[in-house]
Amino acid sequence: MTPMNPGAPPVLVRKLSKSYGGANAVDGVSFEIQEGETFALLGPNGAGKSTTIEILEGYRDRSSGEVSVLGADPAHAGLDWKARLGIVLQSSGESGNVTVLEQLTHFARYYPKPRSVGEVIEAVGLAGKAKTRISKLSGGQRRRVDVALGIIGRPELLFLDEPTTGFDPEARRQFWALIGQLKAEGTTILLTTHYLDEAATLADRAGVIVGGKLVDIGGIDEIGGAQAKVPIVRWRQAGVGHSQRTAEPSALAARLYAEAGGEVEALDISRPSLEDIYLNLVGAGAVADPADQEVEA
């Protein structure tokens, strides 16, 4: 029987490492996810996001470190443990010779307390496609089937590995609404995504992983530290571009206006978005650790 640890948070990761033939795909990553929280794992392709999530899902063994998922070690957890998880994998390429309705009805049978098949199909926006074979669906629609299969078992913990790749903007909004609903029901969610607006909308906290290392972790508003949020003022003077970061951008602009004796050329004041901060972190990580980048390439 799997040892259970009822006091632990749903996800607890301590100094997790995974090496393939000497190279570290994941290198000393630590984080935890509290009950009901949505946590986003961000990072470039090959940074180690999927390896991390697949270790938590029980697909891969770890090289070292401590991992607890719903109170159990995923490397030795059983079917009762799997029944409490929902997994949306990064890719799926099944032949799909079953209809959406058949597939969900079949998968619902594996779980002790499944959601209603009709409601799930409705929630992922496939009500009109319920009797269509999965092979006949578009890429975005198949992705919604993946999401539907991930939530049919009423999971306590949901893993979403790049769930909205291939969605059009409207489908992405619908998906966000669905995740909002799951959050409201108390589902704990671990999300990886390429879309920073998605992380900003859905996640309570995020971790940024670069070259297998966690380079930052915190609330969505805190990522990059207070310094990262400082506005940037950009302008041109005598054909030369300037930029300066300041907590008082209006004062700087006023001073430039006074000095120029009129309109300042190409004046722009902006606050870094999560995307800017993220790109900054990822860029810094790449510079700081060129060896890792080479491994990932």
Binding site: G58, Y59, L79, D80, K82, I87, L89, S91, Y110, G153
Partner: peptide, 18 residues
């Protein structure tokens, strides 16, 4: 072998199916 290649088995490995 095909189901292993196209991800069917990976999906089944993540659900409570003996």
């Amino acid at each position: 072998a095909g189901e292993k290649g196209d991800g069917t088995l990976k999906r089944l490995g993540g659900i409570p199916l003996p």
